[in-house]
Structure formats: C-alpha cells, structure tokens
Design a protein around this nucleic acid. Structure first.
Lengths: 136, 136
DNA sequence: TTACTTGCAAATCGTTTGCGATATA
DNA sequence: TATATCGCAAACGATTTGCAAGTAA
C-alpha cells in the first residue's frame, strides 16, 4: 500500500506507527514525539506531524479532531448542533433537536461522569454543491 | 446580572452583543471584529475576545469550539466516539456504537449534503472524580 | 474615586512549511 | 541514483496576556 503512492517505510515512520499502536492513550503529536524520542533521539516534531498525516491518509491510524481552540460565536444561547461546510467553512444551525439520550446511553456503560456532548456535522452546503455541479 | 460580578456595560460590550445577535452567521472573533469596527472604529480584537468570553460566562451567547484545530491520534483506524475529561484533558474511547441514524435524521431536513459527524463527550474521568471527592 | 475595561503590542500554543542534507528503494 | 524524507528553524493563525491609559458606576 506504500508503493502506489511512492512512499518509503523509513525507520521514523515505522517507530511512530509502532508507538502509537502500543498505547491506548490517544496522545497528542507532542506526547507521541516524546515517546518516539526514546527510540530515535534525533527525530523532530515536524517529522512526527508529517508522518501522522500520511498514516492517516493510508488508513493506518485515525486523527481525532478535538473540539478545541478554533471558535465561532452564536447569539443564541440555547444548545443546538451545527453543520459545517468542508469547502467554504460556513457554519449553519442543524435543523434537528439535541439528542439527550446519547448521554444517557453512554452513562450507563461508563464510570466517566458525562456532563455534556458536542456534535458537529460535516458536509457540503447547497451553494458549494451548485458550484461543484457547474464544474462537472 | 452584571452587578453580582461587578461588571460594567461598556459601549464595546453592548455593540459586540448587538452585532452578534443581529446575525445568524456564527462569525469568528475576527469576522465579528470587522462588523463591530464599523460602529466603533478603534475597538481592538483583544477586546472582542475578552467580551465574548464574558458574555459566554453570563449565558448571553454561546461559544462553539469547532472540531479541527486540536488533534489527538489513535492507533485504531475504525471510527468511534471519545470522552474527554474536562479536568485532566484525558481522552478515552466511548463504549458505545457510532450512531449512523444521526446523519440520516438530519439529512431528511436539510439541503446540506451530510458526509460525516463528530461527537465528543465531555465530563469527569474516574480518577478526577476521586480527587474531587477527597477535597470535599 | 475606585477598579473594571480598554487599545496596543508582544507572547503563546499547536501546527505547518522551506530548506539543504540524508537515506530509502 | 533519483527523489522521498529528514532535522532544523522560521513562519503561521488563532487566541491570550501584560501594561499603562481611559471610563463606568
């Protein structure tokens, strides 16, 4: 699966994959870099980032996009879900109710105390669909 | 509601709230800053950030933390949900199945083409619960 | 008159990128 | 040997923060 993309299995790529597979800690790039450095002391953080991206594209690992520092603001204080257009980055309210049962179902199966949840849909907005159709 | 926290209703705070309430565009802090500058040309981006934080704490508006900027990595390539501890930031697999019907339910009600969804639970992990109990 | 709030600029954080050097296939 | 990949360091974009001046109550 490396060949069709002209990719090479470097020692760095190998160790990054091994170390990630060896833990269930869902490390950040930085935390993984610290682990990998124990075996390859000279590896750089940039190399870790580059390989994590490639390994994700290959389907070998998953990148979890956490709800994080990037923010948008909403004049409506009630909780509701959103849809984001992956092409133009527009953010729109999702026309559906908040599903409280998601938290209840999970709470029955975990010691974690669940307090809230964040649900974001990704897709293509109508405007961008039209644009894409034009180009076809 | 301003009084109990010794907060003042400044012109800046007022206009930021008005402008955010006047749109359904879910602007970024920067985009909102551009709008507000038309009424208060000298207002700084830092002031916009500070007020958005306070208005969120007061429950007047909502801050939407977008999925994307912050990343974690997972050696298991199958899709699944996660729980994040709001105290220690630990990330753990959620013991529940992916709910495909969420996308179907929403797709029936929108022109948006839904392609995927991101669900993240927030709460307190068992270790941090124990710590909090000790301090009580 | 107090101390909350501002504008400005510098700092921070996670991530990305340009470069010349290195190593895989 | 060709070029994918590396290490390094600088660049990046969104957000946060320190400080002295301004202003609401």
């Amino acid at each position: 699966m490396l060949k069709e993309r002209n990719l090479r299995m470097t020692r760095q790529r190998q160790v990054i994959l091994e170390e990630l597979r060896a833990t269930d800690q869902h490390p950040s790039a930085d935390a993984l870099h610290e682990r990998v450095k124990k075996k390859l002391p000279r590896i750089s953080l940039g190399t870790v980032y580059r390989n994590l991206e490639i390994l994700t594209e290959l389907g070998e690992i998953r990148t979890i996009a956490l709800a994080g520092s990037l923010k948008r603001f909403d004049g409506i204080p009630q909780n509701h879900y959103h849809m984001r257009c992956m092409r133009c980055d527009r953010l729109v309210d999702a026309p559906m109710d908040v599903v409280d049962s998601l938290e209840r179902v999970l709470q029955e199966k975990t010691e974690f105390r669940i307090l809230s949840h964040q649900l974001e849909f990704t897709g293509i907005c109508p405007d961008c669909q039209a644009l894409l159709d034009d180009n076809a």
